[in-house]
Design a protein around this nucleic acid. Structure first.
Lengths: 241, 241
DNA sequence: ATGGACCATTGGTAGCACCTTTCGCAAGAG
DNA sequence: CTCTTGCGAAAGGTGCTACCAATGGTCCAT
């Protein structure tokens, strides 16, 4: 609280309100209204507005104020937007989208890591896989989650592609969201442990193809589990509008 | 130019300066300096700073001013950061990274589009492929580029995953950058035309697997062409530091 | 319908009080 | 003489208020 979290607080409130659909697209806001609502001055309201504008959540127009934009204009890849959407009603859809994104990116990242990771990273991966087995079989979900997150982060950041690194936060959110939402079995299934071990070994042996396959298997399994638990929009064959 | 564009101009200048490495990480800026440098008031400088902060380019600290952050903190997925990096010295690396990202995402997006796209989109895709062949064989690179961009955009936006849509801008940048950089042959190779046609047909027939394969072939070819023209960091087998 | 006047609201500037953080300097200890 | 400790001052972001300019809806008059 010692931090001047003034901007952050207002930004968070507005961001959540918009991404949750609480403030629908097209709704008009004004700086004064924001200022009054949150008890801040016009200046800070303006700066918050600039940030929201940067995130594509609103657009500022003279005489009319701030117009809330629709999801098609949002910077849905921005970590803040992701986090906001992950709370609020769009959570399931967001989780599904992010998992598909993971399915796209992580296998390639694993392959890249197999090619680029240094000996230190390779060692840590093996160590992580080993400890995951121990903790997984012991049923310690919390610690298991931490290792899981760490492994994926390590791979994304060692992939040699700086565009993949930031997705580590996303993966962390998805994994922890999945765990805390009770979408995980009480104890990780043995297959998951095997797959992570295979993944770590593939990277350690610099076998890009095997790493890609292993990661693809892991995320694919996650995706299938998600579809099983959250029946919804993914029904194939339905024509769009 | 009718727009005041004051913020935008300063933001652009600062963003380019930072992402190009012209202003190195750790360098100190102050609001007053920014204001004086660009002839704007402190307020504008502050709002620009807030946007830069939102992009992860700088961090504001009391008494010290704005410290420029390193690339690991940048929001490298933000369209503005991408655009800035696409100009300036990091261009090649950026092009390579983005192409790899495309390689990750676009095949899945194509598969999604095959499942989700409505008849209207499917029709437009077929039409696009047809016109691409005509223009490609005529050697009209500019118009060809426009159609190419449109096709990829259509697929990304129809993929049913809202996380993929924003990447359409990225793809557009990459494609146009590639063309304008002379990385394209004077006339598109027939294979590319065939592949795009196969892609459009696969989506039209709602054959997700074929669409994924076709798109993978397209982007894979692009990637290989890029590696051929820009020898560099991608050498496999080299251990990290 | 069309043109013009009005005015709400953002865009931009200026200056102020406040508070945190850092730096420099001085004094004392070893 | 050097190193540590502590204190005070300055620097610079944080937040506020007040003010004017620009602009584009809105609405009225013709």
């Amino acid at each position: 609280m010692s931090r001047p979290a003034l901007h952050a607080a207002v930004l968070d409130a507005l961001g959540r309100a918009i991404t949750s659909g609480d403030v629908p697209p097209g709704a008009p806001l004004t700086l004064d209204a924001i200022g009054a609502e949150h008890g801040v001055s016009r200046t800070v309201a303006r700066e918050v507005m600039r940030m929201l504008e940067g995130l594509g959540l609103v657009r500022s127009r003279r005489r009319v104020g701030l117009v809330v934009l629709g999801m098609e204009d949002w910077n849905v890849l921005d970590p803040r937007v992701i986090r906001w959407r992950l709370q609020g009603p769009g959570r399931d859809a967001q989780l599904r989208s992010l998992t598909e994104l993971r399915h796209a990116v992580e296998p390639l990242a694993a392959a890249g890591a197999a090619r680029n990771a240094g000996p230190e990273v390779r060692g840590e991966l093996l160590d992580l896989a080993r400890r995951m087995r121990v903790l997984g079989e012991a049923g310690d979900l919390t610690e298991f989650l931490a290792l899981d997150v760490r492994m994926h982060e390590l791979l994304l950041r060692s992939s040699g592609n700086e565009m993949f690194g930031p997705l580590a936060d996303v993966v962390a959110e998805v994994l922890s969201g999945r765990t805390h939402l009770g979408l995980m079995p009480a104890s990780p299934v043995p297959e998951a442990l095997d797959q992570h071990e295979a993944l770590a070994r593939a990277v350690a042996e610099q076998d890009a193809e095997a790493a890609e396959a292993a990661m693809s298997a892991i995320v694919g399994e996650v995706r299938r589990a998600l579809d099983r638990r959250l029946p919804g929009a993914a029904a194939p064959g339905g024509g769009g509008r």
